[in-house]
Design a protein around this nucleic acid. Sequence first.
RNA 1: GCCGGAGUGGCGGAAUAGGCAGACGCACAGGACUUAAAAUCCUGCGGUUUUUAAUAAAACCGUACCGGUUCGAUUCCGGUCUCCGGCACCA
Length: 825
Amino acid sequence: MNYDFLDIERKWQLEWEKQNAFRRTEDSSKPKYYLLEMFPYPSGKLHMGHVRNYAIGDVIARYKTMNGYNVLHPMGWDAFGLPAENAAIQNKTHPSVWTTKNIEHMRDQLKKMGFSYDWDREITTCHTSYYKWTQWMFLQFFKQGLAYKKKSKVNWCPSCETVLANEQVVDGACERCDSVVVKKELAQWFFKITDYADRLLEDIDKLDGWPDKVKIMQKNWIGRSEGAVIDFKIDGFEEKITVFTTRPDTIFGVSYIVLSPEHPLVDLLTEGTEYYEDAMRFRKKVEALDEITRTSDETEKEGLFIGRYAVNPLNNRKVPILIGNYVLMDYGTGAVMGVPAHDQRDFEFAKKYDMPIIPVIKPEDDSIDVYNLKEAYVDVGIMINSGQFDGLNSKDGIEAIISYLEEKKCGRRNVNYKLRDWLISRQRYWGAPIPIIYCDKCGIVPVPESDLPVVLPTDIEFKDKGQNLLANNESFINTTCPKCGGNARREVDTMDTFVCSSFYFFRYTDPNNDEEAFAFDKAKYWMPVDQYIGGVEHAILHLLYSRFFTKVLYDIGISPVDEPFVNLLTQGMVLKDGIKMSKSKGNVVSPEDIMEEYGADTVRLFILFAAPPERDLEWSDQGVEGCYRFLNRVWRLVLDLKDVYDKIEGKEERKLSSADKELRYDIHSTIKRITADIEERFNFNTAISAIMELVNAIYAYRDEVDKMDYSNWVLVEALNTLMLMLAPFAPHMAEELWHITGHKGSIHNESWPVYDKEALIRDEVEMVVQVNGKLRDRLKIPADASRQEVEEAVFALDKISKLIEGKTVVKIIVVPKRLVNIVVK
RNA sequence: GCCGGAGUGGCGGAAUAGGCAGACGCACAGGACUUAAAAUCCUGCGGUUUUUAAUAAAACCGUACCGGUUCGAUUCCGGUCUCCGGCACCA
């Protein structure tokens, strides 16, 4: 009774594979289209989020192919990472075994979904053939001075036993396992992403095809702020304190200076004084705080005078120097000037410690008495108490003061970023080894490119957590120095997996190249990615790193483009019962089960129909059932009418009846709607509902028109159009029906239908008739009726004439073919 | 606190450029087919009120809330509330 989806889907999947239907090479005769979905971490099984991501991608890939594009649609595996290592420890297997098994299973699932990937381009980041190039990338960065090792306080996740990048710390906790992150002093490798801060920020404006949301998030993350650094002399010392401020115009209002407790000057300034011990105690107390408490603004602001005074370079006033728990060593200069009158935080701090509040800016209209402030006055205004700068607008004052500081050589214009350098070292085994050798004689020596890859040793015992497994592998560690040939040790840290995923979209353009990461010509043909699709959770991390990598590769002449992704679609989450599907919540729906019960086409259709792509999608078993019913309805319709294909030949075309014309109108208006829905805004939900309406219309035609009166060619046109438009959504069924109705060759090599303008012209239209904006009646009228004819027809309507009886017609608004509104008094 | 986004029937959602609110689907109800069930098909389905024996018909209200612009507002403007996401002692 129902169509045999299992059989049909298997049949066509094998057939497509046999024909290499989705293999693509460079082809200058066609426009290229690079469609990319974020590659998955092979965690074991596909989840609904993956299915959604890849179903959206597959529709676009197939649609673009039907529209004549040479579509690159690759898939691969982000295969390094902690879960594999944890699983290995748990099961006493090697991470590669676990990972390979998962990949095989997930690849199989993807194939069963009927996604049109070019599997010849499959990449796996944990294979030497891939991570050789991850290491090669590191060496290029090193050569450019963009990879460096630095000892510093870094984020340490005690549960994952490794350091984390700033971007991987969410609310002071590890983004992966939610453990509270602690600070640890370690020597670590960094990528100098801050060198690219300005370009990463400026070029956001080039990304017209990205959602504003993501662009704003990246802007905030980079966090550029303009201002000045100002040097304060220290009374009795040669050293100076340099502060960063965005408000140099308020410098005459400085009433104290606050250093971060970790600031190196604190030791010098307090050593041998009565303040020393208290200062050290204060520092320890602050350092002991975890990141959450330390950076929460609910933490009480505390300060401690350390017995020294700084000199304001503009008015030579002496102000006390404090250390404060709210001043961060890793932002700006680790020192701030306190201007209580014009900064709310300083205001509260000054109240607490009874510091003078000196107003130096007043509102132009004197609406606020700045000598009796209830809160800081932070707006622009007129400068007062500022010596030669009095009377200046504070906006101009910023420039004037910076010029003055630069002239006196005690300050300069400065820009600060929140963005930090990217910490890429990880103290874990399952990652790409950092290709560096330490030699007692030569120091830090990069592994020569010809020696790549630095292969991960396999003779590792996976027993306990709590140690870097590479660090104990003697045969890996001990090596010879490439420079002097003497004994040397290898770096034992591996790279953050985000390094692997920051260039994989280049590798897809030339995935099997042993000589280069990718050939320039191939990248030139395919790049940039025309459409990228993935979850919004990567808005900062992956997407920012990938942009950074692309710019570096562009600068060293390897990449033809300086931005990787032209258009970005961030898909919403898949929810069940209003919350995200997760194992811990026990509300996971397995794609495998649904596929077995209803088939891949139904799963695809449902997931595209239930919500527009950017929005969260509520899973509904009944909704799936509905989509299954719909596909069966299509199946029955085509099978029931397939005779018309035999009758069409040799028959004379007869004049179209009104039902024929109506059906043709439906066919072509549907083509128009669906094309716009896909092309302009990826609204697959409305595209699918339009297909459903067309199916309903064909059924209605079948039921209304006597079989003897069928216009066979119109029905053929209807069915062909239906199948073609269904092809990107339900590719297996469309293909099967295409062959059942006698077509040769794959439906997926056919062209997307184009609507016939003639068919959209209607003889008669229905207009809405309003009186004073309220719907009162409808009017059927020839489409080419003049305004006057419309007005006459409207007044002839019983209802309308009754309604306007005895009233004055003020105005008649006619929107051609749509609406008439009579305004009466 | 700051910056985004959203709020429409019982539910998912639609209304693309200010012009029929609720397309399409789900759920539900009634009916047809059937010995019966499933499947399928048909009909109805925002609320209130009035008229009618009934079938039906009509009026009013209705897109979170309050106000504005307009002949006409789910759509534009101002304000309020709620929810979701991001950032948050960033000097």
